[in-house]
Design a protein around this nucleic acid. Structure first.
Lengths: 172, 172
DNA sequence: CGACACATGTAACACGTTACATGATTTG
DNA sequence: CAAATCATGTAACGTGTTACATGTGTCG
């Protein structure tokens, strides 16, 4: 989030409210979760870190706004972020740990967890596909993001099949 | 992490050092990143939250250890965690934002980013597959986790193809 | 007048990460 | 004796999350 906001500001200065909209536009339906407050929290932290500079701007027909622009140091940071090839959490670690825990504690049945999870992921997959079809503009990049989500969901659903094969039979 | 540790303690009480090993065993090669200090930080936070109870145990032939066991409230929490069907970040949001930022700022070329990322993911995929083959015990659950990683990596690589199609041609 | 878009923030907390700090026992 | 293993923690910081708090201008 932090780096992404900084990068958007590197493209063009903006105030918080505007930045939030730009972020929402870049993410499409996926970004519907973001909290308004977070933007301002992050902006002030970026400013404290010297990556961004804020200037108060008075407006006649609207409340004052505070426009932020990147500093030289901030721009360096963006460039570094873009060149960083790390890739977020590629393993479904959490669910794997749930299976282990379910089997170990007897608080839940592993196979039942797998089934519930698959139903949930399939529900989401349908939702994502529905959203992808009903996306307005054809030049909208956020459709790509939906496609990425769908591919991952399909991979995860396939993984759950493997899990089921592995855990079926040795139920406790 | 927090919930997973709690769940492991729900199976059987343990002290920090032991818990770290159990966690490492459950995760296999994927879990090699975990920091020793984190375990103790998390245990004390769990204790503060009243989800576990720690008891000092003196040992003759080794340093004292502190054994933690779940409380009733902790056990409830584990059950709730197991039944919670949320699923971590299914969309490759960060990279998508990088592409948008690269195109917008001119600080990097989107297509070059995609190529670099694909090389990186393919490298990881090979690594994961190598690890899966060289796993010792055949009854080891952590192989499943590696399989999940591999499936996701393949999905992400396929997604990068789509990205490339979309971004090629409109290079700046 | 009431709802909605515009516009901004603070306080508190949870969690992960890292660096640092300490010490005992076993084994080569 | 040195190194590895066993064993535990604290302090500080970065980031995300949420709830709360505040106000203006426009339009129906």
């Amino acid at each position: 989030m932090r780096d992404a906001m900084l990068a958007l500001l590197a493209k063009e200065p903006a105030h918080g409210y505007e930045l939030r909209q730009r972020l929402a536009a870049a993410l499409g339906p996926v970004g519907e979760v973001l909290n308004p407050g977070q933007v301002y929290v992050t902006l002030s932290r970026l400013e404290r870190a010297g990556l961004v500079r804020g200037v108060q701007v008075a407006q006649s027909a609207a409340p004052d706004k505070k426009v932020y622009e990147v500093t030289a140091e901030g721009r360096d940071q963006v460039a570094a972020w873009l060149l960083d090839s790390s890739w977020a959490k590629v393993a479904p670690v959490e669910f794997h740990l749930k299976l282990v825990a379910a089997a170990g504690t007897g608080l839940a049945d592993p196979v039942a967890l797998i089934d519930a999870q698959r139903r949930e992921l399939m529900r989401r997959l349908r939702e994502v596909q529905r959203l992808a079809e009903s996306q307005p503009a054809e030049g909208d990049d956020s459709v790509l993001l939906l496609e990425g989500s769908a591919l991952r969901l399909q991979a995860d659903i396939r993984w759950l099949e493997s899990c089921e094969e592995r855990w079926t039979g040795r139920a406790r």
